[in-house]
C-alpha cells in the first residue's frame, strides 16, 4: 500500500515548465527556467538575460563572437584521429569517432584559426565539448601545437579557449603525452615572447587544466564555469565529504589566485583585445 500515494498535495510543476516547447524556436535557461526566443538568445551571445547563465557554446559560436565579421582562415582543418591503439570499449573508438563526426559536423574536439580581432591579427584555438566531451587526443594536441607554431612563426598572439573533460581515454598514453607536447610548445611561445591568453570555459578539467589551460600569460574565465583538475565526483568519492558551495567555480579559482580575471561573454572580445594590446612589445 501507499506506493502510488501522492505525498504532497496539488500539482507542483509550474505551468510554464510543463508547456511543450517546439525545439529550436525557444531557449529555456536550465538554471532559472527563463524562456526566450532562440533568436534573441543568440543576439545575447547565448547568455540568459535573466540570470546571466552562460550557456555552453562551441568553436562556431566563439569564432563568430571574436573574429571580425566572422572572417577567419582555419588552420589544419583536416586532421583526424587515427586510432593508434585499436581501442574498443563498449564501442569501437573508430565508430565512436565516425558517429560523433556525423552528429556534430566537426572533425575533432578543437578548431584552430587565424584572423582579425578588432583589427589585430590573432590565432584562436577553441575546443568543442560536443565532440567526446572536448577530450584531448592526438588530433587536439597536434592542432594546438601547430597553432602555436603558427603564432611563433608569424608573431601573432595566441588565444586558447578550453572546454574539456580532459585527456581522451581511447588514445590512452598518446593522449597523456599531448599534455607534454602542448606545454613544451608553450615554452617555445614564451621564449619567442608572443603573448598567450588562456580562456577557461565551462567545463575545463583534467589533463587540459593540467597543461595548456593553466599556462597562459593571462588565465581568464567566463563566469561560473567549472574549472578544476580532478572532477567534483572523484574528489567527493575520495574524501567522502560534501564539497563546499561554489567549489571549483571560476570565482573560486580566481579567489585562490589561478585566474587573472573573469569576463562576461559580452565583454569578451574587447577585453581580450585590450589585454593583448597592453602586452604588445613596442
Amino acid at each position: 500500500m501507499g506506493w502510488f500515494k501522492r505525498l504532497t498535495e496539488g500539482i507542483r510543476t509550474p505551468s510554464k515548465e510543463k508547456k511543450e516547447i517546439p525545439e529550436g524556436l525557444w531557449y529555456k535557461c536550465p538554471k532559472c527556467g527563463h524562456t526566450v526566443i532562440s533568436e534573441d538568445f543568440e543576439k545575447n551571445l547565448w547568455v540568459c538575460e535573466k540570470c546571466n547563465y552562460h550557456e555552453r557554446i562551441g568553436s562556431k559560436e566563439y569564432f563568430q563572437i571574436l573574429f571580425d565579421d566572422n572572417k577567419f582562415t582555419e588552420l589544419n582543418p583536416n586532421l583526424t584521429s587515427a586510432d593508434p591503439l585499436k581501442f574498443v570499449d563498449t564501442k569501437k573508438y573508430v565508430d565512436r569517432i565516425k558517429a560523433t563526426q556525423k552528429k556534430t559536423g566537426l572533425k575533432d574536439a578543437v578548431r584552430t584559426a587565424t584572423g582579425k580581432m578588432n583589427g589585430d591579427d590573432v590565432v584562436i584555438g577553441c575546443m568543442d565539448f560536443s565532440f567526446i566531451g572536448g577530450s584531448m587526443g592526438s588530433v587536439v594536441g597536434e592542432k594546438i601545437a601547430r597553432a602555436i607554431d603558427y603564432s611563433i612563426e608569424h608573431k601573432i598572439p595566441f588565444l586558447m579557449i578550453s572546454k574539456s573533460g580532459g585527456a581522451r581515454m581511447m588514445e590512452a598514453a598518446f593522449s597523456l603525452m599531448q599534455m607534454a607536447k602542448t606545454s613544451a610548445k608553450l615554452a617555445l611561445l614564451g621564449e619567442a615572447k608572443v603573448p598567450y591568453i588562456s580562456l577557461l570555459t565551462d567545463p575545463t578539467t583534467g589533463g587540459v587544466t593540467a597543461s595548456f589551460a593553466m599556462l597562459g600569460d593571462l588565465n581568464i574565465a567566463e563566469p561560473n564555469a567549472l574549472i578544476g583538475f580532478a572532477g567534483p565526483r572523484v574528489i567527493k568519492e575520495t574524501i567522502r565529504k560534501d564539497l563546499p558551495e561554489g567549489f571549483q567555480t571560476s570565482e573560486f579559482v580566481l579567489e585562490h589566485g589561478f585566474l587573472d580575471y573573469i569576463v562576461e561573454r559580452k565583454d569578451l572580445k574587447d577585453k581580450i583585445s585590450q589585454s593583448f594590446n597592453l602586452l604588445k612589445i613596442k
Partner: peptide
Amino acid sequence: GQGEAIARNLM
C-alpha cells in the same frame, strides 16, 4: 592549484 602545478612542471 593542482592543475597549474602539474602544467607548470610540464612546461
